[in-house]
Amino acid sequence: MGSSSGFGSGYDYSFKILIIGDSGVGKSSLLVSFISNHVDDLTPTIGVDFKIKHLTVGGKKLKLTIWDTAGQEKFRTLTSSYFRNAQGIILVYDVTQRETFTNLFEVWAKEVELYSTNQDCIKMLVANKVDKESERVVTKEEGIAFAKEYGCVFLECSAKTRANVDKCFNELAHKILEVPSLLEEGSTVVKNTILKQKQERQASAGGSCCS
Score class of each variant (00 low, 15 high):
Glu141Ile: 02
Asn118Glu: 15
Thr102Asn: 15
Arg98Lys: 14
Asn103Val: 09
Asp120Arg: 05
Thr100Glu: 05
Val153Cys: 15
Trp108Phe: 06
Arg136Cys: 09
Thr102Pro: 07
Val112Lys: 02
Gln97Trp: 01
Phe154Val: 12
Val112Gln: 03
Val126Ser: 06
Tyr93Asp: 08
Asn128Val: 06
Ile122Asn: 02
Ala109Thr: 13
Met124Gly: 00
Val138Ser: 03
Val126Gln: 08
Gly143Arg: 09
Glu135His: 02
Val137Asn: 10
Ile90Thr: 00
Glu113Val: 06
Thr139Asn: 14
Val92Thr: 09
Glu135Lys: 11
Cys121Phe: 04
Glu133Ser: 12
Leu114Ser: 13
Leu104Asp: 05
Cys152Ile: 03
Met124Leu: 12
Asn128Trp: 06
Ser116Asp: 12
Glu149Arg: 12
Arg98Asn: 11
Ala127Trp: 08
Phe146Ile: 02
Val112Pro: 03
Glu111Ile: 07
Glu133Asp: 14
Val92Asp: 03
Phe105Ser: 09
Ala145Ile: 08
Thr100Ala: 13
Asp131Arg: 02
Gln97Gly: 07
Val112Ala: 02
Val138Glu: 14
Gly151Lys: 11
Val107Trp: 10
Val92Trp: 01
Val126Leu: 04
Leu91Glu: 14
Lys132Asp: 14
Gly143Asn: 01
Glu106Trp: 10
Ser116Cys: 04
Ile89Leu: 10
Phe105Ile: 09
Val130Tyr: 04
Val138Met: 13
Val138Asn: 01
Glu141Thr: 14
Val95Asn: 10
Ala127Arg: 01
Gln119His: 11
Asp94Trp: 01
Asn103Phe: 08
Phe101Asn: 08
Val126Pro: 03
Asn118Ile: 03
Gly143Thr: 01
Thr100Phe: 10
Val107Thr: 13
Thr117Ala: 01
Leu125Met: 03
Tyr115Gln: 02
Ala147Arg: 02
Gln119Lys: 02
Tyr150Leu: 06
Thr117Asp: 03
Ile144Gln: 13
Val137Thr: 13
Glu106Gln: 07
Thr117Tyr: 09
Trp108Tyr: 06
Gln119Arg: 15
Phe101Met: 11
Gly88Ala: 13
Phe105Gly: 07
Val112Arg: 03
Ala127Met: 06
Asn118Thr: 13
Glu113Gln: 09
Ile90Phe: 01
Tyr150Gln: 05
Phe146Ala: 05
Phe101Ala: 06
Phe146Glu: 12
Leu104Tyr: 08
Leu114Glu: 05
Gly151Phe: 00
Trp108Thr: 09
Phe154Gln: 02
Thr139Ile: 00
Ile122Gly: 00
Glu141Arg: 10
Val138Pro: 05
Lys132Tyr: 02
Val107Cys: 06
Ile90His: 07
Glu106Asp: 15
Lys140Ile: 13
Ala147Trp: 06
Val126His: 10
Val126Met: 04
Tyr115Asn: 03
Val95Asp: 14
Glu99Asn: 08
Phe105Arg: 14
Val95Cys: 08
Leu104Gly: 02
Ser134Tyr: 12
Glu106Ser: 05
Leu91Lys: 01
Asp94His: 01
Ile144Tyr: 07
Lys140Leu: 11
Lys123Thr: 08
Val126Phe: 12
Thr100Ser: 15
Val107Met: 07
Val138Arg: 05
Phe105His: 13
Asp120Glu: 12
Phe101Val: 06
Lys110Pro: 03
